[in-house]
Design a protein around this nucleic acid. Structure first.
Length: 285
DNA sequence: AGTTGTGTTGAAGA
DNA sequence: ATCTTCAACACAAC
C-alpha cells in the first residue's frame, strides 16, 4: 500500500523521469476515477510541460507550466509505471507481473515516453486543478503536518499528542488529519519500534514514551524511504519493481512468528477494522 | 461456490 | 462531538 515512503519514492522517481516532458495525450478506460471529468482533465493537461513534482501526505502532485497541477491518490494498490520510448518488454519485470497489468490510465509524452497507472481495485483517482487550488482541495487542506516534515519537532509532536490525549495511539497515528503519511504497515512498525502498545491511551504516555514514539516514527519512515518502500503483494515503483523495506519489517504480517527482540510471539489484533501486529513482550500495556 | 480478508478515505449512521 | 460501520472495487484464499 502506498504510504508516505512509497509515495515519496514515486515522487523522487518522477522528478528524475518526467520533469521537462510535454504531455500530448491521455487515455483512460475508467473515466469515473478522473476529476473533475475526463474531458476537462484532458483539456487541462494536454500540451503542457511538467515542471516539478511534490507529495502531500499520500497524494502525488505533478505541477504543469500552465498553472495547473495533477493530483493523484493511489489508495491501496494503485501504482505508476513509467515506460520509456525505447522500452523493451524483456528488459524489465514491467509486464511480467500481473499486478502491473491493471492499467486504467495513461499519460503520453511528446518524446514517446508514457506514464501509466495500474490499479487493480480501481480505488485510486486523478484530478487536475489550478496549482493555487491544490492546497484548497478538501483532501489536501484537511491533512495534518507531514510525518517527515522538518517543521515537526518533538515539541510540536508532543503538542499534537496532547490535543488527542483521550484517543488510543494506534488509532490516532493512522489519522491523516492529525499527522499525514502513516498507513497500516507503518503503524505497526512504528509502535513496535517505540515499544508502545497500540491500545494505550495517549494521555497515559509519559515523556520518555512520547519521545521514543517520535523518534521511531522518523526512524522507520526514513529508513523505508531509503529502502524505496515496502512491497508486500502490491506496491511497485515507476519501473515496476519492488521496494526493499519488506525485508526489514519486524512485526507487520508476521503473526505467529518470533519477535526479533524478545523471541516472544507476534500477535495480531483489529483496531479500527484493520490489523495491528505487535509483540506481547516488547509492547506491554 | 459463496464468504471473508485485504486497506485508504470519506460519508453516513449511531 | 466522536466513534463505528460501510462503500468504492477486485481478487486470493478458504
Amino acid at each position: 500500500m502506498p504510504e508516505l515512503p512509497e509515495v515519496q519514492t514515486i515522487v523522487n522517481d518522477l522528478e528524475k523521469k518526467v520533469v521537462g516532458l510535454t504531455i500530448v495525450d491521455v487515455w483512460s478506460d475508467y473515466k469515473q476515477a478522473v476529476r473533475p471529468n475526463f474531458s476537462k482533465f484532458k483539456k487541462g493537461i494536454v500540451g503542457q510541460k511538467i515542471i516539478s513534482t511534490d507529495r502531500k501526505g499520500k497524494h502525488l502532485v505533478i505541477h504543469l507550466d500552465n498553472n495547473h497541477s495533477i493530483v493523484i491518490h493511489l489508495k491501496m494498490i494503485g501504482h505508476l509505471l513509467f515506460k520509456p520510448k525505447k522500452f523493451s518488454s524483456r528488459s524489465t519485470e514491467f509486464f511480467d507481473e500481473k499486478i502491473n497489468g491493471y492499467i486504467h490510465h495513461i499519460i503520453y509524452f511528446k518524446n514517446g515516453d508514457s506514464l501509466a497507472m495500474s490499479d487493480m481495485r480501481k480505488f485510486g483517482w486523478l484530478a487536475v486543478v489550478k496549482t493555487f487550488e491544490v492546497e484548497e482541495m478538501k483532501e489536501i487542506s484537511q491533512l495534518g503536518i507531514d510525518a517527515l516534515s522538518v517543521d515537526l519537532s518533538f515539541k510540536k509532536f508532543d503538542e499534537l499528542l496532547e490535543k488527542r490525549k483521550n484517543g488510543k495511539i494506534g488509532i490516532v497515528i493512522l489519522d491523516q488529519k492529525w499527522v499525514a503519511g502513516i498507513g497500516n504497515i507503518y503503524r505497526s512498525e512504528i509502535l513496535f519500534e517505540a515499544g508502545i502498545n497500540s491500545e494505550r491511551l495517549i494521555k497515559s504516555l509519559n515523556n520518555d514514551e512520547r519521545k521514543k514514539l517520535y523518534q521511531a516514527m522518523r526512524k522507520v519512515l526514513k529508513k523505508s524511504v531509503r529502502m524505496r518502500g515496502t512491497s508486500t503483494v502490491d506496491y511497485r515503483d515507476t519501473a515496476g519493481k519492488k521496494g526493499n523495506f519488506q525485508n526489514f519489517l519486524k512485526v507487520y504480517g508476521r503473526e505467529g512468528e518470533q519477535c526479533p527482540n524478545c523471541q516472544g510471539r507476534i500477535e495480531r489484533l483489529k483496531l479500527s477494522q484493520r490489523s495491528v501486529f505487535w509483540c506481547q513482550g516488547c509492547q506491554k500495556n
